[in-house]
Nucleic acid binder design. Sequence first.
DNA 1: GCAATAGTGTCTATCAGACATTATTTA
DNA 2: TAAATAATGTCTGATAGACACTATTGC
Lengths: 243, 243
Amino acid sequence: MSEDNWSPPAVLLAVDLVILTLRSSRLQVLLVERGVDPYRGALALPGGFLNNAAEDIEAAANRELREEADLDGTQLHLEQLRTYGAPERDPRGRIVSVAYLAIAPGLPEPVAGSDAAEASWRSADDALSGVIELAFDHRRILADGVERARAKLEHTALATAFCGSTFTISELQQVYEAVWGVALDPRNFYRKLQGVEGFIVPAGTDRRVTKGRPARLFRAGPRTVLHPPMVRPDTCENGGEHG
Amino acid sequence: MSEDNWSPPAVLLAVDLVILTLRSSRLQVLLVERGVDPYRGALALPGGFLNNAAEDIEAAANRELREEADLDGTQLHLEQLRTYGAPERDPRGRIVSVAYLAIAPGLPEPVAGSDAAEASWRSADDALSGVIELAFDHRRILADGVERARAKLEHTALATAFCGSTFTISELQQVYEAVWGVALDPRNFYRKLQGVEGFIVPAGTDRRVTKGRPARLFRAGPRTVLHPPMVRPDTCENGGEHG
DNA sequence: GCAATAGTGTCTATCAGACATTATTTA
DNA sequence: TAAATAATGTCTGATAGACACTATTGC
């Protein structure tokens, strides 16, 4: 089965980042314009190769987050998503990419002139539907990232990662509505949220003033796993309905 | 930031398999005894390097499934679990491993003399608790695999992958009980299962004869996503953690 | 005052959890 | 007959979904 002088093949390892945020109540993803072939000029997920053979993969993800998006990985949610390694996924050769999912609070457009000058926030829906074309298999990676975020909103407190350190309940509702792509009843949402102990905790007596009555401010609570979960409304998916 | 003659470092890519099954109503995992250094003689997850630079990663997982476990990947559930790439995880050098999770129906002990002669089913609990020591970071990989299986039982039809082509409702209940490590009420379980349309469908008029009244046989239905989900009983968990 | 948003209450269908009962087999 | 397991039924507390109402701001 194995020859005497067989030795395992080496591959190039890259990381790609699905960085999601909420801007103007829409789910957006950070994309960069490629400056080199292949796919020069096309949009792609931020990412790059390991710096050296000793660099940890998650450290590489944090480094790309800083270099390409000007974001601090210690301040936002970052988790490994999945590894993509089809032999033909990159025309340059055998490149295996470990994708990471990052969730950031709403941020301004990356500043021109910075390291992240080529990066810009784009509509996640446009990228998913193909209105915006992505290089390589990045559309698939994005789809997996968005689906991961959707699923984790249900049973973890991930939604707070889309918000600043303090937020109102309606801001949190906008996160759920934008990521899930559904409309939620504010009153039921309010009641449900208050019922899950430790999900959100009051943040002092400050209020957020906009147009109507000022809203109370909260911050993320100690609970990360939601019990019972938030329920995503039936979007008549999959094999059917229910009994 | 990048030197002119910089080139990305290469790494060795391996796959590791978390193969779970149910034997005697216990969750078990397939482990192999290592015949070579490092960790010679210790138990480890089945796995190995890519055969060549053109081999697809999932194909490599299927190949290892066949070579090391004598299992046919097309007949059982196989999904990518996670990638492990800490620089020091393997004393031989920089080896990045893509772990896969496989779920198999209850099977006999691998036959001595076959390619899988070194493999044997072991208690998943023993391996998780440290009673059985595993090589490398394989205990962590196993823990992630078991947790993935536990979570997926809740909102997918994965449980049927632990059973043969036909099964009884109580057999399916044993899957949930063994993987979750809880006791479930047979009557509520029965009612719940029948209520989720498309999860399981009757398989003819045959019955499974054991001791008491013969049980109806079912097979997996078309539905893969459970709506509403099966609910894992409160095991007074959480305060904070995440992966 | 009006418009707008925040926050609370109430009803109801559904469902999970507890537990009783009947049915069908082997020994 | 008893023992064992399968299958069905009933009650109850919790809750998701629908929707009406009150509260507090800016204009």
